[in-house]
Amino acid sequence: MSKVIVITSGKGGVGKTTSTAALGSALALQGKSVVVVDFDVGLRNLDLIMGAERRVVYDLINVTQNQAKLHQALIRDKRVENLWLLPASQTRDKDALNEKGLARLMKELRAQFDYVVCDSPAGIERGAILAMRHADEAVIVTNPEVSSVRDSDRIIGLLDSKTERAEKGAKVEKHLLITRYDQARAGRGDMLKIDDVMEILLVPLLGVIPESEQVLRASNIGQPVTLANPLSAPARAYGDAARRLLGESVMMNVPHERQNLIARIFGGRAA
């Protein structure tokens, strides 16, 4: 059974694209066939995070408007065999995405892949609504910070009203993914705790991704963090989250970077 998952947040810059790439590749490493779809028409970035920016020929808009076949637009990942990317268009705007063409495309993707992971644009406008439109499940990416939590709450409302499932009286299964979490700051009372965010949003927790310099390092070289440095704390956290998406029960803990002895002695930070 194929599943469509939207990665959404309302607020920009909280880690939707990073999470799409990391979760998509982690699911593929678990043996599933996965396509990650960039819905951010006009501001595409998933291609860059996946390291495929120079291989884009056709895009989402071309396929929905029948200017190209799906197989012409899909880009196969060079590292993971069963991972594919459908890039967004960079030169068009979100109005170019039409609902009929999108419905047809999603049907085609469902037939071809186990998981269709949709990277939503920020905001609550048409582009974000279309990205969640066909979703079975939603990953709500939230930073432990007031504006991000507020926007996530808004997105949860939209998932319950604007999706195809909601219109049929069914539910989109929602998962909370807390990113950029800093355990030390939360411990000092300077950052919302995981329990605080869960209690406010009332969405079950999928995972907690610790704040880490590995995320920027991975994006610099165009690799999902799960592939760039599989043993790093965020990669392990994304791997755990992916396994939970697959229905495994994985103990919830926040991975932290392993410090070597020298770094510990000199108080340096782990690489």
């Binding site: 007031v146 507020r150 709450d153 409302g157 000092r188 300077d190 406010i200």
Partner: peptide, 27 residues
């Protein structure tokens, strides 16, 4: 002196705000 913790303030502000906003957006 340690700075007073700010997270509880964030939590409370959000709870009040969202109970208000959920109404405005039909939740």
């Amino acid at each position: 002196e340690p700075a007073p913790s700010t997270a509880p303030v964030a939590r409370e502000r959000l709870q009040v705000l969202l109970s208000h906003e959920r109404g405005a957006t039909g939740q």
